[in-house]
């Protein structure tokens, strides 16, 4: 996956180098600019068994600030924000691989370095008894829950 580039970032930013679980690396740039998910919207995506994005809805595209063709086939961690603890994602994957539903508050990174908070739910897609992929639905979170999550994530 390509490093983020300053050309896409408005104003000042910080840098972070991710070392992902699959052995790849990526430099991300992030700002303090928040975008709120509008009321009534749901962000929907699907991934394959390896966490590669296979489908996104228009709200996903709009909130991520990427074009659809920049998203399809990419790892879902393209949205991972440096301030999200890896423990949260470890819990997510171990939960859904056991065919249970995972819920959590997630700070996502946009292409322009900004962020948006969501309440995410992820489930395994089970067809003929086998897991074939994963569906994620994200919705607007309450500010109280976001504040609680920020405090908690700083301790993980």
């Amino acid at each position: 996956m390509k490093n983020m580039t300053p050309d896409d970032i408005p104003g000042e930013y910080q840098e972070h180098m991710f070392n992902y679980h699959d052995g790849t690396q990526r430099k991300v740039l992030f700002t303090n600019i928040e975008t709120q998910l509008p009321e009534g919207r749901l962000i929907v995506s699907r991934t394959d068994l390896n966490g590669l994005i296979t489908d996104v809805n228009p709200s996903f595209i709009e909130m991520s600030a990427y074009h659809k063709d920049e998203l399809i086939g990419q790892p879902h961690y393209i949205l991972r924000h440096p301030e999200m603890p890896s423990a949260a994602f470890n819990d997510l994957w171990s939960t859904v691989k056991q065919r249970s539903k995972w819920h959590g508050y997630v700070k996502n990174l946009r292409k322009d370095g900004g962020f948006y908070w969501v309440y995410a739910t992820v489930i395994a897609n089970i067809r003929n008894g086998a897991i074939t992929g994963f569906t994620s639905v994200r919705r607007r979170a309450s500010r109280t829950k976001i504040d609680e999550s920020e405090t908690l994530y700083q301790t993980l």
């Binding site: 929907v44 699907r46 539903k101 739910t121 992820v122 489930i123 897609n125 067809r127 569906t135 994620s136 639905v137």
Partner: peptide
Amino acid sequence: QEEAEFMIDLMDTL
């Protein structure tokens, strides 16, 4: 079938 399954997965998440 798969289109319906997708919607059903979505309902399950909600």
